[in-house]
């Protein structure tokens, strides 16, 4: 039944069979999906309570939207996330706290406040982020962006082989994290759908995700409501859940371990169902024909 290696995300340990829901919690006024719905700290806290109730093992707190927009300096980013991390740590000791940041200084501050995991969506743009993770024995997510600058959109980027590029860059990043002192069981790789990629790239990464899983590093996928889903179906944000769940199912079959999501309940059901079909997970309660 084993599908992967054990994970240790800061204070929290998970078996090799575990799949994990990482719920997105935005401390931003302008993120694409919720458009500031959890900008107010109490709203963001309510969102944490809700996703924990829904069974999310991880919350991923972000203070800067990924897309281009108003410049947010380090001090403002810290103001948005550090005290919030401390509040969540205190209220929810059993949840893994991830922070979506590429900055080492922010990484250190949130780890000091109780974060377990640094989700670097920008592929190691700040080379010291791995040192911050190592100093605090935190986990790190190593993403592939094709080398783009943080908060930029892809423009006419092409790859000879996008999967080969994603594998080379994420495993290279993982090796740097390991060399910096991050524990092996605390390193996760992420092909980073839509980051430095057009829709065709993200679709190919989804289709060939098993090649990333075969590297042996645990794979995180961040598919939720993204443009590659929207463009595939010609649907706007707000109407992409079904397409997201289809991509989730393909990723689960390939063996992805962590799912960064807006919708926890639906994603959990899809991942559990796929892994049950794949024979990696038992049915919850089967009696039909067996009584």
């Amino acid at each position: 039944m084993t599908q992967g290696s054990p994970l240790r995300l800061g204070r929290h340990e998970f078996s090799g069979e575990a799949t994990l829901m990482m719920a997105i919690v935005n401390r931003t006024p302008d993120s694409f999906y919720d458009k500031g719905a959890t900008w107010a700290e109490d709203k963001a806290f309510d969102r944490v309570a809700q996703v924990v109730e829904e069974g999310a093992e991880i919350v991923d707190i972000g203070g800067i939207k990924a897309a281009p927009g108003e410049f947010i300096d380090e001090d403002e980013e810290k103001r948005r996330v550090v005290s919030f991390v401390a509040r969540v740590r205190s209220a929810f000791p059993d949840v893994v706290i991830s922070v979506d940041t590429w900055r080492a200084s922010v990484g250190r501050a949130v780890c000091e406040a109780g974060a377990d995991m640094l989700n670097d969506a920008w592929g190691g743009a700040d080379p010291e982020l791995v040192d911050a993770a190592a100093e605090y024995d935190a986990a790190i997510v190593c993403t592939h962006t094709g080398g783009v600058t943080p908060r930029t959109r892809p423009f006419r980027i092409e790859y000879d082989d996008v999967v080969a590029s994603a594998i080379a860059d994420t495993t290279g990043y993982a090796a740097r994290a390991l060399a910096a002192g991050v524990a092996k069981e605390s390193i996760v790789i992420d092909p980073a759908h839509d980051f430095g990629k057009n829709t065709f790239h993200s679709l190919e990464l989804t289709r060939r995700l098993d090649e990333m899983v075969a590297t042996g590093w645990p794979v995180l996928v961040s598919l939720s409501n993204k443009d590659f889903v929207g463009e595939s179906l010609d649907l706007p944000v707000g109407e992409r859940l079904t397409g997201t769940l289809a991509a989730t199912a393909i990723s689960a079959l390939a063996g992805a371990r962590i799912y960064r999501v807006h919708e926890v309940t639906e994603t959990r059901q899809v991942v559990d169902m796929v892994n049950t079909i794949a024979g990696r997970r038992r049915p919850r309660r089967a009696i039909r024909g067996l009584a």
Binding site: R281, R282, P283, R284, A286, I287, G289, L290, A291
Partner: peptide, 15 residues
Amino acid sequence: VLALRPEYASLEDPV
């Protein structure tokens, strides 16, 4: 009862 057999085990035992 077939549900007693290990190959038909569930996460939550129905029996």
